[in-house]
């Protein structure tokens, strides 16, 4: 861990362009918390304004004819269930990501939400890569990097005897 280098003539020293482990962990955690806040805010706002009666069926019904039309119109057949599951789901996904609990499972459902928004909002005036797609990509990124392991509670949960005896749970945690 020698730190002696010639500060007066920096170019004499090697310039490292390697990935910084601590910065990568820090940034993955920041992305996780901010993505989580995004969904938590959306879910809690719905809970505060319309309780468990959020009206999502009309939106989904309007998606008939899109790529995800069959799924959306199927879901629209359960308006009461959706009225509770959408605000509760968004809140739970947000809490999971912010605290780093069951991050991969939560991110799967976040990606499902964002797939419906990406296709349903269809705001493609500036091209197919829009903020809905970016949000979707963030959830996939959380899964790939197992973002809950960095400053998240999944790091502790994965060390429990229960999880160590059931290693497949790491596909839901992490």
């Amino acid at each position: 861990m020698g730190m002696s280098y010639d500060a007066a003539t920096p170019l004499r020293n090697d310039v490292g362009l390697e990935l910084s482990g601590p910065w990568a962990a820090y940034w993955v955690a920041m992305l996780r918390v901010l993505t989580g806040w995004w969904f938590f805010h959306s879910g809690v706002g719905k809970l505060l304004d319309s309780g468990l009666n959020f009206g999502a069926a009309g939106y989904l019904q309007g998606m008939s004819g899109t790529t995800l039309g069959p799924l959306a119109t199927f879901l629209a057949g359960f308006p009461d269930l959706l009225g509770a599951l959408v605000p509760l789901g968004e809140t739970a996904i947000g809490l999971g990501l912010m605290f780093g609990v069951l991050v991969r499972l939560a991110s799967f459902f976040g990606a499902l939400f964002m797939s419906l928004f990406f296709v349903g909002n269809a705001s493609f005036g500036h091209g197919l890569v829009n903020s809905d797609l970016m949000g979707l990509l963030l959830f996939v990124t959380m899964i790939v990097f197992a973002a809950g392991r960095y400053y998240g509670l999944d790091a502790l949960i994965e060390r429990t005897e229960f999880v160590r005896n059931r290693p497949r749970l790491k596909y839901l945690l992490g």
């Binding site: 861990m1 020698g2 002696s4 280098y5 920096p10 020293n13 090697d14 490292g16």
Partner: peptide, 9 residues
């Protein structure tokens, strides 16, 4: 102020 990594100095 670049940093010299361990082992590369």
């Amino acid at each position: 102020v670049p940093r010299v990594e361990a082992g590369t100095e």
